[in-house]
């Protein structure tokens, strides 16, 4: 170079590191904006893509919410695995006392509640709404009942079985029932369902990756000419990749937000029927939606999937485009 010092003709070393970092930040802001615009420029078809992703996410997420609710329900009952002892109908009050004290002596027992036949009948009349019919009865058809709460150390299935057998042999006991046997079965079923939900989540997560990847592939092809030009003026693959990564990220972001809205709307829709159902069981139970950290996780996961899907797709397709 003969005129290096006073001319514009110098080798380009680019800018200083600090300026480069500053510029990189600006570029990122710019590309992020451009990524959003890319989606907003074509609202209808992009909304379809976002909706498909949102639904694909909402299915496993919704199932997970239901499972979590079922689990918390069954767990709250699991600790209270009570045993009901139905006494023989013809027992006298003193005999009932006798059986009760016998049960109380058992070391595995936390507490015993005695429900006398009259009280049981009252409760039943009150709750069932058959008060009039019941008042017509000549005699009380209900037995005295002992509600036994085993100590927590004795509430495992095996210990419960042993207790059950012991109580069965007491004189005056007609029938022994482990109240919450079905809860345990439900719990086991839920665990199975959870595995199925994970598998579903995995499959649909993969589907989301493919949807994003394919959308980005089309977007790369649409901008083929632009990519060629940018390559000709010295852009690195990383520079070209960036706007597409942002587009993928925004797909994930919008889809995650939409998924959250879908889930919350479904839960609101379910609230009334659930409240009715819970009312029938004298429960205040209501379905738990997503809390803040779960919502954040959903959004993060969705953004991550969008980013990953576009990253997997964009590198390969950009390399195929060379200026001609």
């Amino acid at each position: 170079m003969n005129s290096d010092s006073n001319s514009g003709a110098s080798l380009n070393q680019g800018a200083s590191v600090k300026n480069k970092l500053k510029m990189l930040l600006r570029l990122h802001k710019l590309e992020a904006k451009r990524g959003i615009n890319e989606i907003l420029d074509n609202p209808f078809s992009n909304f379809m893509t976002v909706l498909v992703i949102a639904i694909a996410l909402a299915l496993p997420a919704g199932l997970q919410i239901l499972l979590d609710n079922g689990k918390s329900l069954s767990q709250s009952w699991d600790g209270a695995s009570r045993i009901s002892l139905y006494l023989k109908l013809d027992l006298e009050a003193t005999q009932i006392e006798q059986v009760t004290s016998q049960v109380r002596q058992n070391l595995a027992i936390e507490s015993v509640e005695l429900i006398m036949p009259a009280q049981a009948l009252n409760d039943f009349a009150e709750r069932s709404g058959f008060a009039d019919a019941i008042s017509e009865l000549d005699s009380n058809p209900l037995p005295a009942t002992l509600i036994v709460q085993p100590k927590s150390t004795h509430s495992s299935p095996q210990a419960s079985e042993i207790l059950l057998a012991e109580f069965k042999q007491l004189e005056g006991v007609e029938k022994v029932q482990l109240d919450l046997d079905w809860v345990r079965k439900l719990y086991a079923l839920l665990q199975l369902a959870e595995k199925a939900a994970s598998a579903l989540g995995l499959a649909l997560g993969l589907a989301v990756l493919l949807i994003v990847g394919n959308t980005i592939r089309l977007s790369v092809q649409n901008r083929r000419e632009e990519i060629e030009v940018v390559k000709l003026v010295g852009a690195t693959d990383a520079f070209i990749r960036r706007p597409f990564l942002y587009t993928g990220f925004w797909y994930g972001f919008f889809a995650g937000t939409l998924c959250w809205i879908i889930l919350e709307a479904s839960l609101i829709w379910l609230q009334q029927p659930v409240a009715n159902l819970a009312g029938l069981y004298q429960s205040e139970y209501s379905v738990n939606g997503l809390n803040l950290s779960q919502s954040a996780k959903l959004l993060l996961f969705s953004c991550g999937l969008g980013l990953l899907g576009s990253w997997l797709s964009v590198g390969r397709h950009i390399r195929q485009i060379e200026p001609r």
Partner: peptide, 13 residues
């Protein structure tokens, strides 16, 4: 501005 953005110049520059 494209070549300058690619090279990472400061926006005032």
């Amino acid at each position: 501005a494209l070549p300058l953005m690619i090279a990472g110049y400061d926006h005032r520059e």
